[in-house]
């Protein structure tokens, strides 16, 4: 009972923050709302017994990506001397497409067999199991993602840095 209340709380938080992102115009507020949304999502992960995922979500999204984005906002909007205003467009076709997509998804879900599956409780030390799986079954993707991170690090650094040759000014 307690769990369910917490779950509804998290869901409510994230829906609200998503609405804030959608409707407000200030980019900085959007980033903060995204932070709320991500933290509540990590709580939902924890309730779904994916503790490692929840911690990763907190660390990487809330800690890493959000900071990156806030830096991005600072670097791009300040220089222009404008406020953090963000305009929007395409509302009518966008809402049409997304609501139709939502309807399609809901109908598909209603017709599918996924909702009928019952919960078999996973027991035991989940984080330990994650580690074992990561080093045995998922060893190859793990290595590959390491390489991907390295490449992305170099790529991002090279792209953002302004060498004499690559800068256009």
């Amino acid at each position: 009972m307690m769990q369910e209340v917490i779950l509804y709380l998290f869901i409510g938080f994230s829906i609200m923050s998503v609405l804030v992102i959608l409707l407000n115009r200030n980019v900085f507020y959007s980033a903060l709302a995204l932070l709320t949304c991500l933290i509540s999502l990590s709580g939902i992960y924890g309730l779904l017994q994916a503790e490692f995922l929840a911690v990763t979500q907190l660390l990487i999204y809330a800690g890493g990506v959000l900071v990156l984005m806030i830096f991005g906002i600072m670097l791009t909007n300040r220089i222009a001397g404008k406020s953090f205003e963000s305009k929007s467009h395409n509302w009518i076709p966008g809402i049409l497409v997304t609501t139709s997509l939502l309807v399609v998804l809901v109908i598909t879900f209603q017709n599918s067999s996924i909702k009928a599956t019952q919960n078999e409780l996973n027991t035991g030390n989940h984080i330990r199991n994650v580690g074992i799986e990561l080093m045995s079954t998922y060893a190859a993707p793990f290595e590959v993602s390491g390489v991907l991170l390295l490449v992305c690090l170099i790529g991002a650094a090279l792209t953002a840095s302004s060498f004499k040759k690559s800068s256009h000014e």
Binding site: I21, L22, H89, W91, G94, V97, T98, T99, L101, L105
Partner: peptide, 10 residues
């Protein structure tokens, strides 16, 4: 997902 898409589009 849909609201994310809407944000990305609008």
């Amino acid at each position: 997902f849909c609201s994310g898409l809407l944000i990305a589009v609008t």
